[in-house]
Lab assay of single mutants.
Amino acid sequence: MAEQVALSRTQVCGILREELFQGDAFHQSDTHIFIIMGASGDLAKKKIYPTIWWLFRDGLLPENTFIVGYARSRLTVADIRKQSEPFFKATPEEKLKLEDFFARNSYVAGQYDDAASYQRLNSHMNALHLGSQANRLFYLALPPTVYEAVTKNIHESCMSQIGWNRIIVEKPFGRDLQSSDRLSNHISSLFREDQIYRIDHYLGKEMVQNLMVLRFANRIFGPIWNRDNIACVILTFKEPFGTEGRGGYFDEFGIIRDVMQNHLLQMLCLVAMEKPASTNSDDVRDEKVKVLKCISEVQANNVVLGQYVGNPDGEGEATKGYLDDPTVPRGSTTATFAAVVLYVENERWDGVPFILRCGKALNERKAEVRLQFHDVAGDIFHQQCKRNELVIRVQPNEAVYTKMMTKKPGMFFNPEESELDLTYGNRYKNVKLPDAYERLILDVFCGSQMHFVRSDELREAWRIFTPLLHQIELEKPKPIPYIYGSRGPTEADELMKRVGFQYEGTYKWVNP
């Protein structure tokens, strides 16, 4: 592979701008107003304001973009700056750019259920340069409990009458099928589907988006991507930290609602779906819905739930269990780990287990898709061969690698495990991989909904998990304890083995 010439960040961002501006969906010269509902909250200060700053800094926003914060707290732009700027990672050389960014910011205080507050917000936006005809993007960085009041008031008082209007809704989209349907029906009564952007930030990850290209742009994968060759698929999300004093919020939802029903299920769809007619948003989402419709409700015998306990040999936070978090209700049975087996009941995947695993306070930070292939028929190497695996590593250190057998150097035919490896950090030294939120917010500006969740996708996802969630809430089974920093409950490994996964433990990928 030829040595790549190092590029400056300015040059890299210039390439990104060229890609972005050559499309006809990006209205570079139009006025846009980006409204952050819930501007005083954690999500706004840690993710949304920093993301908008990065896009502005790199010249990736339309030229005439204004940012308006809205929340109940009586704040000023200076207050917003004070709480969000520490997350910007701005350099001293960017000081003038930073001043320009905050000059485009404003803030309006108001209630979430008060019509007069929204009329005041609308008047404020109209007073901005060309504000009355601007395109408006409303980001709901809010708890779902206020979605209905907020969307109703936005629709009645704050819509642009000339430009387009788009609304970005953060997960969780309800707690179960019934609450999700209620919320979807409410929002759909106010906005068209092409105006609604239900954001799952995992769909903005580079390697998640790469799944489609790997599958449908490489001839070698087509013939082997089926039940005849693939023994099982494992989708993993692991965090090495616990709730760390923020367990009160987590306890309301648990690990299945927080990660599995959305992030992991979306990745499953991209692995299992048929080739779409095109890369058009609805063509892709149509195929994802077909996959979900082929999955039956989760069966309790295919589920393992766990909850982390303190590690007596650990240090600091590792010595504390979930129930030691003062914000967690006493005696909570909320799971911090889950392993679930699903089956896609169609011709391509009949009988292939899709194993979804996620948890907190585990032994490493990792998100990946792992396809394990069947054993080689007619073994001539005296059971020395391990199964081939194709691994798409989402985070950290984005990579695609194939675990395969090669001859060990020497005189004899002794096979050993090795890999074919594409590590993004080595291959793409001159490429700026956008943060997931950067990519998705740019998608909203461009009107691309491919990486957002459609209402029928959402409904099918909740259909699969709601009976299990209701059973857990009714019966309150005690989750299996696992030690902070471990791989999780051993019962999860036993479940995976029972459905056909072979864990060798003899080879570990190392970032080159």
Rank of each mutant, 00 (worst) to 15 (best):
L203D: 02
E85C: 08
E244P: 14
A109F: 08
Y49H: 03
H129I: 09
F34K: 11
P50L: 07
E252V: 14
L75Q: 07
F250M: 07
I196W: 04
P144Y: 00
T31H: 06
Q11T: 14
K205N: 04
P144V: 00
N165E: 09
K205V: 03
E239P: 00
R175M: 15
F191M: 11
A217F: 05
E19N: 15
V77M: 10
E99D: 09
S8T: 15
K238N: 03
N229R: 00
S123G: 13
L211W: 07
V233E: 03
F237I: 15
E94V: 05
M212F: 05
D181C: 10
R74Q: 14
G222S: 15
N122K: 10
A39Q: 02
L183R: 01
G23A: 09
H155A: 14
I168R: 01
T243F: 01
Q111V: 13
N64V: 07
N122D: 10
S157C: 12
R215Y: 02
R104Y: 08
H186R: 14
A141R: 00
G59D: 09
A25H: 15
R227A: 07
A217M: 09
I48R: 00
I80C: 06
R74H: 13
R257I: 03
R175A: 09
E244M: 15
G248P: 04
E93G: 12
L20C: 04
Y202W: 03
Q209L: 02
G204I: 02
D58Y: 08
R104S: 11
K46L: 15
G163W: 06
F173Q: 07
W225S: 02
E244W: 09
N126G: 15
E244Q: 15
T76Y: 06
V108T: 04
S123C: 08
D79T: 12
Y249P: 03
E94A: 06
D42L: 00
I167N: 08
N126C: 12
R192H: 13
Y202K: 00
S40E: 00
Q111F: 10
C232M: 10
R192K: 15
H186C: 11
I255Q: 04
R74I: 15
L61H: 01
Q11Y: 11
S180H: 05
F191Y: 14
F102P: 01
K95M: 08
R192M: 09
M207G: 05
Q178R: 14
I167W: 03
I230Q: 04
Q28E: 03
Y249D: 00
W164L: 05
R166C: 02
T236D: 08
G131T: 09
A231S: 12
I15Q: 07
R120K: 11
T236C: 07
A127D: 15
I80P: 01
Y202V: 02
V208D: 00
F241S: 04
E85Y: 08
S29G: 08
F191A: 10
K47V: 00
W225C: 04
I33G: 03
Y202L: 03
P143Y: 00
I15L: 12
P50C: 13
I168N: 05
Q178Y: 07
K82S: 12
D114H: 06
Y70V: 11
G248A: 10
F253P: 01
R246L: 03
N122I: 08
R9P: 08
K152N: 13
W54P: 08
D24G: 09
Q119R: 15
I33L: 13
F221S: 08
F101G: 01
A217D: 03
E85I: 14
H129A: 13
N126L: 14
G14N: 15
N165A: 14
N165F: 08
F138H: 07
N185G: 11
R104P: 00
G163N: 11
E18D: 05
P143V: 09
F87V: 11
E99N: 09
S157D: 15
G174R: 01
I36F: 05
P50K: 07
D200R: 02
K152W: 14
E63W: 10
E252M: 10
Y49N: 03
G69A: 13
F253G: 01
L60D: 04
L7K: 14
H155K: 15
E244G: 10
W164D: 04
M1K: 00
R81Q: 15
S73W: 02
D100C: 12
H27M: 04
P144F: 03
Q161N: 15
E156V: 11
D176E: 05
Y197F: 13
K46S: 04
R9E: 15
R166I: 02
R17F: 14
I154Y: 01
E18L: 07
K152H: 11
R72Q: 02
L7W: 06
M125D: 00
S180V: 08
I255G: 04
F87I: 09
G254T: 02
E18Y: 08
I256V: 11
K82P: 11
S84Q: 15
V169R: 00
H186S: 15
D114N: 08
N229M: 06
L96S: 09
K171A: 02
N126M: 07
N64G: 05
E239D: 11
L211I: 11
T31V: 15
L177M: 13
V208K: 01
T243H: 03
G23D: 11
E94F: 04
Y112R: 02
C232H: 06
G174K: 05
H186N: 12
F56T: 04
M37D: 00
I67M: 06
S132Y: 14
G131D: 13
E156M: 09
D79M: 07
A127G: 07
S132G: 11
T65L: 05
I35C: 05
D79C: 06
L203R: 01
L177R: 13
N122H: 13
A231E: 07
G59W: 02
R192W: 13
A39S: 05
D30L: 09
K171Q: 02
Y197P: 00
L75C: 15
F173C: 06
N210G: 06
L75G: 08
N122Y: 09
T145F: 12
L203W: 02
M212P: 08
F34D: 00
V12S: 13
Y49G: 02
G222C: 13
D79R: 05
V12C: 15
I162P: 06
K82V: 14
F26C: 02
F56S: 04
S106H: 11
F216G: 00
P143G: 02
L20G: 03
Q28K: 12
I224F: 08
R257G: 05
F173K: 04
Q209C: 08
I224W: 04
A134H: 11
S179K: 04
F88Q: 05
S29R: 12
S180N: 06
I199M: 07
I199E: 02
P50R: 09
Q178S: 14
S189E: 11
L130P: 15
N126H: 14
E148C: 07
L96G: 11
Q195P: 02
R198K: 01
S189K: 08
S160K: 09
V108L: 07
P92W: 10
K45G: 05
A2T: 15
